[in-house]
Design a protein around this nucleic acid. Sequence first.
RNA 1: GUGGUUGUAGCUCAGCUGGUUAGAGCGCUGGAUUGUGGUUCCAGAGGUCGCCGGUUCGAAACCGGUCUUCCACCCCA
Length: 446
Amino acid sequence: MKPSIPKGTRDFLPSQVAKRNFIFETIKSVFSKYGYVPIETPSMENLTTLTGKYGDEGDKLLFKVLNNGDYLSKADQQALEDKNSSALTKSIAKKGMRYDLTVPFARFVTMHRNDLAFPFKRYQIQPVWRGDRPQKGRYQEFYQCDADVVGSDSLMYEAELVKIYDDVFSLLNIDVNILVNNRKVLFGIAEAVGVADKFIDMTVAIDKLDKIGEEGVVKELGQRDINNDQSQRILELLKIDNLTALSEAFQDCPEGLKGIEELRKFHSYLDQTETYNNITFDISLARGLSYYTGCIFEVKASNVEMGSIGGGGRYANLTESFGLKDVSGVGISFGAARIFDVMEELQLFPKKITQSIKALFIAFDEETHNYAFKQLSILRSKGIAADLYPSPSKLKKQMKYANDINVPYVILIGTDEMSSGALTLKEMETGEQRTLSLDQIAQLLV
RNA sequence: GUGGUUGUAGCUCAGCUGGUUAGAGCGCUGGAUUGUGGUUCCAGAGGUCGCCGGUUCGAAACCGGUCUUCCACCCCA
């Protein structure tokens, strides 16, 4: 049979894993610096944990895990007969693959609340699964790197998380624009024009402003039962790009004013420090996931066409559905696969990260091969990553291998080198050769 | 989930309105070069033309189905 992998999934070659780890290590180092600690949760969660958290669209994209055993005999016979898939699903699948890291984290916090010190700051780097139709930069299995803090509603954390974005992307050399908005501001708009009951519909439409333009948004709003007059007023409010003017428009919208107040406070923290990247207030930023309640973030790469490479926000009530009230959380997520694609496109990966060893020994015959193995062991015992070509093959073949694995140095050992102890060290990039003792080589490579 | 698109050597792709033994570049293997890779030259290996079925004397090409890729929508990292 012909081997294949499921749609939207990928294998990773050694060089790709090396690059991905470079991204992960960079992100981890920043998370740690800010005091976040790592946790892990299972790939599968109970469907009761996951359903209803991501909106109707999200529920459709959840991967369900078929029950083990004789699941058909326990299935909902009526649903089976009616060919009602969604009703049947409940009776034959009680587990699902995690869709993001935030909801499982809320479940985790609720279950382990007595073991955690609040505010609790955690990071988590694990794959998630979505039954979405694949496209470029969009997979059914992909890694997310999340940092969240729960147990405090201080806007200091919003500022801190934006600083983390700023640090990570400047370390990775990606120029980004960090967009910020507040859900309460959006609610204020809905309130101000009298469509508070259609809040979600409104956010979905205005989120597309930069994509489909004003006309498109009006059309979209119309399809969602928001009349032309209301739509025009929404567009006018969206043109306001400073908080002072916005607060005047929100005279009678306490929720909207609160959103403005939060943004001000957030900025007052951020203003105490310098940032490398642009941080922009974007009133049309909405974000799809319905659990956000306060500040929301999205990160876009400046120099390349790609969907967002990070997103996050404040969720005041996420643990409530698990029975834990008044625990506010805020978090951010990095889309590792897309960051990978952006860095590949802009050629931002350092060449060094695909180097696995510092030096490769090359021997000319059986006797020197044995001797080289001894020298190799000595070098390794000094903590230097090194290897020996497994047989004294033709030099050309061994050198080609050295070239293929991108090793910076080769150490040539023939009869002369073995008898004198003076080894030939060749630097691959320049081709320059030197005669040195193993000790000298070790010192050079440390 | 809706509409479209793609699939030919390890990779990137040619292959005309259906007609002999399906090609190129790169890569790979060997040689030119018995102590030197990344350059050059020569030779060679490698293909159930995504898969299943249909039309036809004859299918890589036409038709249907299916899987996959990418694109738009939906949504999102």
